[in-house]
Every structure is written in structure tokens, then in C-alpha cells.
Design a protein around this nucleic acid. Structure first.
Lengths: 164, 164
DNA sequence: TGTTGATCTAGACCCGACTCTAGGACCTAG
DNA sequence: CTAGGTCCTAGAGTCGGGTCTAGATCAACA
């Protein structure tokens, strides 16, 4: 039932270095015990906590905030309000992140569609394949059109979304 | 129509330092021009590109990848496939991120619910308010129950989701 | 005519989160 | 008995992404 640091590293996906580092940083739920020879011993519960921990990390919680949470938890009952606040703050944070990512995805999908449409036509199309970089040399992107005609998008930046 | 670095900083939300840094790193769509006295001048299109740029950053694209993208774009037409690939790779990346964040949110919402239920009852409840840290001193979390009865969750870690 | 205030350059510094190194201990197998 | 593998500590190094400093230039204002 006892796990060595190597086993924990394997099963958690963290490096042994990172595990020692996390311990130094006070990120373990319960203080890591040692064998008489000084070697660390871990248990299943540590793995479970590490799993949450890495979830929190990968959702952008800083080690400092994780430490704070775990310190509250270590103090035992009585501070559940604080823990809840911490969790909720991070939850809001993650929700905001998701919303922003969704927005970004919308933008990127639009851009990808433009490129795709362009390439689909482009191979047989005079407009874009002229192997030498053509007309608008110094600004391959951007709205301000070199020719003031409503050109069919320049497929880079904050550009026209209207063409097909 | 010309913008100073200070104005751009204000309007983009980036610091003047960051703007100069971005320029050094080759992240501008078109090379930043200078006034005769050496001061940088920017234009609306730079702001628009910076807006995309910060979107890409905040969705986790590295400055290196942004540089690569903008370098392709600067080369003019002919490499749309590469740009599209870059975009699509990042898109996949962001979609994966969103999925992971959603999972994390599920976990966190569950946890928050547990805390809430706990606190709602807790104030009048014998189980949790005993101001001194009670029974399970060194492990305030985790499943392995101090008492082997199916206790009503310990509100921290990868713990029972079943209680109400 | 100073004194702000914005800008410039080069380069040092910082922070978070690891990652790695050196030097040593210990265990087990051959 | 020694070679290999895992572990230990303290502390240095790395990397990304900025941030800040010093010292200089310039423009505008009172």
C-alpha cells in the first residue's frame, strides 16, 4: 500500500522533482511521511489529491492558491466558508476562461473558413496563387485595402468576414 | 491617424514595455515605422492586430507560434496552407482546453455543492462545527474514512459524491 | 529657461513553475 | 564486493513572458 516517489511520479504524471518541489511548497494534503531511511512514502489518497491538484493547476489555479486551499483544509473544520469562497472564485475564473475561449474559437473558426474557402477556389483561381508575392507587399494583412475596392478578404487579421 | 506608443498602450491594454518587447520579438504584422525623431508610430490596423494577438495569447498560443504565423503572413500569398495548419492546430488545442475546463468545472461544481449543503446544514449540525479540530486530525480530506461507516463526505478531495 | 512628460535604447531583473546537478546514502542482484 | 538503480538534500539553472532601470533626447509649457 506504500508508494515510493517513483511510483507516484509514474502514476500521477508529475516528475519526481516536481513531487519534491510540491512538498517543499506545502502542496500536499497531509505531510509526506518517511521511511526510517528518509525515503518518502505516499498512499493512494495522495494520488487522488494530486489528481485534483493537477486539475486545478491546468485550469489555471496558481500554486499559491492551491496551497492556501490545502492549508485551510489541513486546519480542519471551521473554515468551510473560506474554502468555499476560494473554490467559487476559481470556478468563476474558469467559467470566464471558458467564455473567452469560446469567443476566440468563434473568431478562429471564421478565419479558418475563410482560408478554406480561399484555398478551395485558390488552386484554380487567379486571385491568389501568383507564386511571387504580389500587389500588397508590405502589408499582407489588415483591412485598409491597397485597392479601395471591397476586395475578397485578405485572410489574415481583423479582416472582412463578409466574402465567401 | 498616427498613434504614439502611449496611446496604443492605453487602447490595447498592453504596456509600452510590452509593445516594444513584442516588436523586438517580431510580433507585429507590419514593421513599426518611426517618426524622424525615432519615435514609433502606429495605426488602427496595428491595434486590430494586437487585439487578435492578445486573443491568441490568452488562448494559450505562445509568442513563438504567433511569430511564426505573422511571418508567414508577411511573406504574402503562397503559404496559406501552412497558415491554415497553424490555425487549425491551435483551434484543436483550444477545443481540448475547453473540454478539460468543462470537466474541471463539473468537478468543482460538485465540490461547491457539497460545501454548500454542508454549510446549510452545518450551522445547526453537530457533525461539523466543533471548533476544535476533531477526529481525523492529520487527514482532513480523502476517502479512506477514519470511521469505516459510509460517512457523509469530507468536503475536500476526491471524496464521496453520494451524500446529500 | 528651466521643468515636466513622453519617448528612446540596451540591458538587467523578476516571477512562476519547474528541472537539473552534484555529491552522497542505501538496497539488491550477480 | 561492486555495479546499478532508486532515493536523498541543497541549491543552481531554465524558460516564457514580460517589467524595470539608467541615461539620453526631445517637445511643450509657464
Amino acid at each position: 500500500m506504500d508508494l515510493s516517489i517513483g511510483e507516484v511520479a509514474q502514476r500521477s504524471g508529475l516528475s519526481v522533482h516536481a513531487l519534491r518541489f510540491y512538498e517543499r511548497e506545502g502542496l500536499f494534503a497531509n505531510p509526506v511521511r518517511r521511511l526510517s531511511n528518509g525515503r518518502r512514502i505516499y498512499h493512494e489518497e495522495d494520488l487522488e489529491w494530486l489528481a485534483i491538484c493537477t486539475r486545478l493547476r491546468s485550469s489555471g489555479m496558481s500554486l499559491a492558491d492551491i496551497r492556501q486551499y490545502i492549508q485551510l483544509a489541513r486546519q480542519g473544520p471551521g473554515n468551510e466558508h473560506e474554502r468555499l469562497d476560494l473554490l467559487r472564485r476559481h470556478q468563476d475564473h474558469v467559467e470566464a476562461q471558458v467564455r473567452e475561449l469560446q469567443d476566440t474559437l468563434d473568431v478562429m473558426r471564421a478565419k479558418v473558413r475563410i482560408y478554406e474557402a480561399h484555398l478551395a477556389r485558390g488552386e484554380a483561381d487567379s486571385l491568389w496563387n501568383p507564386s511571387h508575392r504580389a500587389q500588397s507587399d508590405p502589408q499582407p494583412c489588415t483591412p485598409s485595402p491597397p485597392t479601395p475596392t471591397p476586395t475578397p478578404t485578405s485572410t489574415l487579421a481583423p479582416d472582412a468576414e463578409e466574402a465567401s
